[in-house]
Design a protein around this nucleic acid. Structure first.
Lengths: 146, 146
DNA sequence: ATAATAGTTGACAAAAATAGTCAGGTATGA
DNA sequence: TCATACCTGACTATTTTTGTCAACTATTAT
């Protein structure tokens, strides 16, 4: 029941990009320096986020990444789903297994009730938090310090 | 963000034990046959559940396992915590890291807000479901079939 | 007693996932 | 045309998962 570093690093990277002016791209090098994550690993993560349409890249000098939607339109669930592959705690409740999520144990599988509830709880939680929320919190913390 | 088979198998085993009369022990062999899980692996899981006080063992012929508390007093969270080690999606929000869960990133770590909320959502969900609930559901399903 | 049943324990091992690294490539602006 | 910075795929070490196996201990029926 662990999230991998992909999600935690990915969220930190996305937050770093979101905190900048909309027109200013954030380079991997900047993120690496600020967050202490290796450049090569960040490349992998941001590439994935770009292919899933969460960020856009700007090449050349002064290049980097910008959000492809407004911070209020990007949820933590979007980021986690992209980087972990999916968000489901047990594969039998993944939508891939049909709309009624039938696994090999059939419809009378009682434990599946639990995993469905859990999947819903996780989904609801992560979908309720946007990058805008986190930016606001970051600004609040910064202000409190000064 | 995956639960291991330890949790899914473990819950099925616990449910099998809970479905039997309180005074009748359920052997690993029975569970293995009914659930299609290997005897050797079940031994590992039930041992852990016993050491954490969720089941008691009865040795010798007609032996097996019984619940050490009433089904209404055992939650899915108990089982998952025992078998996965803990229930926290990110180690930085584990209580081991102090009451305020300080990680190396300190108190001003904004992403931590997310992981705390997630940990709470998961915990609340799994703590709200008891073995009694699942037994009731199993009986309901069985009745519907006949 | 003793044989059969059934839990106890620790060590071992294959397979998969994680957490990166690395080399070489492409696009862009000064 | 050079420096910056993204792009891509392949590769690898480590850790976790998912078990297996062998030998042992306790209990009951005969």
């Amino acid at each position: 029941m662990k999230l991998s570093t992909k999600s935690t690093y990915g969220l930190r990277a996305m937050l770093a990009i979101a905190m900048k002016d909309k027109n200013t791209a954030t380079s991997i090098n900047d993120i690496s320096g600020a967050e202490g994550i290796s450049v090569a690993y960040l490349e992998q993560l941001l590439n994935r986020l770009r292919r899933h349409g969460l960020v856009e890249s700007v090449r050349g000098p002064k290049g980097g990444y910008i959000l492809s939607r407004r911070p209020s339109e990007i949820t933590v669930a979007d980021i986690v789903k992209t980087l972990e592959g999916n968000i489901y705690p047990v594969h039998c409740v993944s939508p891939k297994n049909g709309p009624l999520s039938a696994c090999s144990r059939g419809a009378s599988c009682v434990p599946k009730i639990v995993w469905h509830k859990l999947a819903r709880a996780i989904s609801d939680c992560l979908e309720s938090i946007t990058l805008e929320d986190l930016c606001a919190e970051a600004i609040r913390i910064k202000r409190r310090k000064s």
